[in-house]
Design a protein around this nucleic acid. Structure first.
Lengths: 234, 234
DNA sequence: TTGACAAACTTAACACTGTTAAGTAATATA
DNA sequence: TATATTACTTAACAGTGTTAAGTTTGTCAA
């Protein structure tokens, strides 16, 4: 479990003599570097999911992959960046789930519900990720003013996926399905309802998964009903 | 700023000779202990509000009150208990605000809105406290299974105040103001809406205070509208 | 094959953290 | 004044993230 990635000297002892291929040597070096980076990410992910954010430790990650703590600093500039990339994969699936929900329905109203359901499913299915992003270290992901490390392109793609909710709300409004209301505001209201359900559940304040789903479902229903036009326009 | 509470030897050096009053000696001793406890709490509160949960340090508290770190362990069993009591005072005002909101109106529907507004005001006004309780260390306050230290009576009083929302929702339902809906579920929906608004704001994901208040206000309005009976009963 | 160079990796240390055990100083009681 | 108790400190332990300096290793050219 420890010696997943063989250290450089191990691979060299056997192959060093026949050093004919020059261009591929640095390729192999780089591949090893990438492999190690992935191994670090894997071990870190496992420890993160197992112990959560509070008990997540760089040194433990290092020990898990069988390297000294300082080695990690050659692949990630600090603990936060490692943690960021660990959670990145989780949020990629978040984005995919939202996008899939958007694509799953044609009707904007049904889509809105599907997106909400997908959101809930991610929150309840990946509570450690969700807690990190929205409860424990949100400034790591949002709050652009203090970004210590650069965001990879995949992250921005992800953020785009998050905006499917706003996009869909706008589409509902454009289709004149609702009474007159600001699009941004309505997005916020729906987001608050969904995030509230997830957050109250995964923070363990007494709302179980069933209740969270029910809050989402019926809260959504009530909101939609409240958005209905009372008297036909024009 | 450091020598707020004089240490025992300082008070004794002057008064020790005339040790006539026996019963008051331990009284004075106990008073000093309580004073120190309060001084610790004060310093801890200041540091907590200043640095937040992540950077809150026992040793810094000790230095601030001018005692060694171990002294704190004579007044609080560990860092968590100190933090708990630091936040307790904040949440006392939370409970009072909710109770005051409940008392401020006669009409259950107006009360519901008042409670929501009070909740928002606390969340936005005491973000460090709110974050600790609902986002960073909720298990310290809820999640009865793993209570390491005992809760003081004042805490239980506080928790009672939190239930004014549930109580008021029940009253609305009893007054047949809404369509048929489970009281627990509706409480959850309203709570999710309010908590969602607060949480999205104070976690810095892009919802400012004005938006949070708007989400609460209009979200509440939509929910109430959605709860209206469509056709008169009986 | 050998030597130089750069990359990879480790050791040692720093400055912190919470927490405990053991010992000292101060006070209250007899 | 002696004794017990309480208050408090010192020293240490086992951790943490992070940095500087040094060593090992792999690569490439002479």
């Amino acid at each position: 479990m420890k010696e997943t990635i063989p250290k450089p000297q191990d691979t060299a002892q056997t192959k060093a003599r026949g050093a004919r291929i020059q261009t591929k040597s640095q390729q192999r070096r780089q591949k090893h570097k990438e492999d190690l980076r992935l191994a670090i990410l894997d071990a870190a992910t496992e420890l993160f999911l197992e112990n959560g954010y509070e008990k997540f430790s760089l040194r433990q990650v290092a020990e898990a992959v069988g390297y000294s703590p300082t080695t990690i600093y050659h692949h990630f500039q600090d603990k936060d960046e490692l943690l960021f990339h660990v959670s990145l994969e989780g949020f990629r699936t978040f984005g995919e789930m939202l996008q899939a929900a958007y694509d799953s329905k044609e009707n904007p109203l049904e889509r809105l519900e599907a997106i909400g359901d997908a959101y809930i499913e991610f929150g309840l299915g990946y509570p450690v990720h969700y807690r990190l992003m929205f409860m424990q270290r949100p400034e790591m992901f949002f709050d652009g003013n203090s970004k210590k490390f650069e965001m990879p392109e995949t992250f921005n793609d992800m953020i785009d996926s998050f905006s499917v909710l706003q996009k869909n709300v706008q589409e509902c409004i454009d289709a004149e399905l609702f009474q007159s209301i600001d699009s941004q505001l309505l997005s916020g209201i729906i987001w608050a309802n969904i995030h509230g359900a997830v957050a109250l559940c995964i923070s363990g304040v007494g709302v179980d998964e069933g209740a969270a789903r029910a809050i989402n479902k019926h809260g959504h229903k009530l909101l939609i009903k409240g958005l209905q036009k009372t008297n036909p326009t024009t």
